[in-house]
Amino acid sequence: MAIEVRIPTILRTYTGGAKVVEGAGDTLGDLLTDLDSRHGGLRARLVTDAGVLHRFVNVYVNDEDVRFLGALDAKLNDGDSVTILPAVAGGAFGFAAAAAIASHGAAAAVVPPSVTPRAVVR
């Protein structure tokens, strides 16, 4: 079954520049595995080593944020449209930001290693 996936500019290096690709899978996790077989490296930009979606990547199924649909377990159907957008985030940072990150997202929140604050209190 075909699911349309919209790829953001920054990840089009994995899709030969394509803005939209097609894939298959019963869940988002399956879809990303399927995509990775043809667009090697793409999945690793979206899923952490621990096997959860990166905190600062937004993935949508049709009009819904997958965080509210079970994340990688989100069910997919033929004809669904998946959109990937890198979160737009930043700021002067500091302890308050670390707290904001920690409190904002799911328990699975993962800060990319490159920005893990050195002084964050967990």
Binding site: R67, A89, A92, A97
Partner: peptide, 24 residues
């Protein structure tokens, strides 16, 4: 103008649903 979903003095983050709507 976008909403700062983090509402912080040192951090900003677009609201994910507003982000999708505006990018669409």
């Amino acid at each position: 103008p976008m909403e700062n979903a983090a509402r912080s003095m040192t951090f900003y983050e677009f609201d994910s649903m507003e982000h999708l709507r505006v990018w669409r």
